[in-house]
């Protein structure tokens, strides 16, 4: 039976990265279509806690790879181990969530396996070995169906497009895999500085509240609504270029591409560049003084008005309903 191998991800604090559960669900969906079994790989100094956490999420087998060299993630140490595991179990598909780690690691794994790869996959179709990967191009302005022609196929999935794998499934068989010793890594881990934020990751958040030029640099109300909703804060390129907010808040074709359940655009006109980064959101709310702003063309709900009045009122209504 062919195998779909999903690489789990451990956060620097040792916890499971939530996106792994979405990748497991995507893997299960692919396995069902390909007539394959879902396997997971966990690389860590001590993979046991994560194996325990993941054991009832639908995988048939969990492979644990334990080594002191896996304490800090490095593509140069992880890729050879994952590739060896994939070869050893005869995996036909190797994937992970399209997180910073998944985007860094999977192409290197694919290169070792001479496998072609599809990034940011949003869906699978077809059956057996004839699987079609659906993925965005041009920042989501185009959705393409692609076929990977190599024997082994690699992919990352966009976590927001798949539900989290539910717990409570039949327990997986947990088995240790000892990868052959890899040559010394040419890269050394130096340090990790956590950017302390009580807010969720922009690309993982269920709700995103973004501000643009209309804030005139005052993001207080944007941030206050985000915090009321437990949302991430985003911004248009104009707001980032003006130096009002950090560049990594930028949502758009050259920034981050988000697809939350709810996207609130406050004082954002809706340049093509920005729309490309957020129009995959399930529900879009636009707040803008200009009734002709292009953002209203993609918004499910639009309100013409001053964001400095609308945002506090909306926040009060949400707070009142709690």
């Amino acid at each position: 039976m062919s195998i779909v191998l999903i690489v789990a991800e451990r956060q620097p604090d040792g916890q499971l990265r939530k996106a792994t559960l979405h990748a497991a669900a995507a893997g299960a969906d692919l396995a069902a279509k390909a007539g394959a079994e879902l396997h997971l790989a966990i690389l860590a100094e001590d993979p046991a806690p994560l194996a325990e956490r993941l054991k009832d999420c639908g995988a048939k087998v969990i492979h644990t790879l334990a080594s002191p060299s896996f304490a800090h993630y490095l593509a140069e140490t992880y890729a050879p181990a994952v590739a060896e595991l994939a070869k050893s179990v005869g995996a036909s598909f190797v994937g992970a969530a399209a997180t910073a780690q998944g985007r860094d690691l999977l192409p290197r794994v694919a290169a070792r396996l001479r496998a072609a790869m599809a990034s940011d996959v949003v869906g699978f179709s077809g059956a057996g070995t004839d699987i079609v990967f659906t993925r965005p191009m041009w920042a989501g302005a185009v959705i393409s169906d692609v076929k990977l022609k190599t024997a082994i196929k690699a992919f990352t999935i966009r976590a927001t497009e798949f539900p989290a794998a539910p717990a409570g499934k039949a327990p997986a068989e947990v088995t240790a895999f000892s990868a052959p010793a890899a040559p010394a890594s040419p890269t050394r881990f130096v340090d990790f500085k956590e950017v302390k934020s009580a807010r969720p990751e922009l690309t993982e958040a269920r709700i995103v509240v973004s501000g643009g030029r209309g804030t005139k640099g005052d993001f207080k109300e944007v941030e206050a609504l985000a915090d009321e909703l437990g949302a991430a804060v985003g911004a248009s390129r104009a707001a980032c270029d003006a130096g009002w907010v950090p560049n990594d808040w930028q949502v758009g074709q050259t920034g981050k591409v988000v697809a939350p359940q709810l996207y609130v655009a406050a004082g954002i006109s809706g340049a093509i560049q920005h729309l490309a980064g957020m129009k995959g959101s399930k529900v879009i709310v636009a707040i803008n003084k200009d009734p002709e702003a292009p953002i209203f063309q993609v918004a499910d709900y639009g309100i013409v008005g001053d964001l400095f009045k609308v945002l506090p009122e909306l926040r009060a209504a949400i707070h009142g309903a709690k």
């Binding site: 956060q11 620097p12 990265r17 490095l74 997180t99 910073a100 780690q101 040419p186 890269t187 050394r188 881990f189 130096v190 340090d191 990790f192 500085k193 956590e194 950017v195 934020s197 990751e201 690309t203 993982e204 990594d248």
Partner: peptide, 12 residues
């Protein structure tokens, strides 16, 4: 730039 922070590597 990685999820939730900045990682520093020394690349030979």
């Amino acid at each position: 730039e990685v999820d939730s922070g900045l990682a520093t590597l020394a690349c030979s």
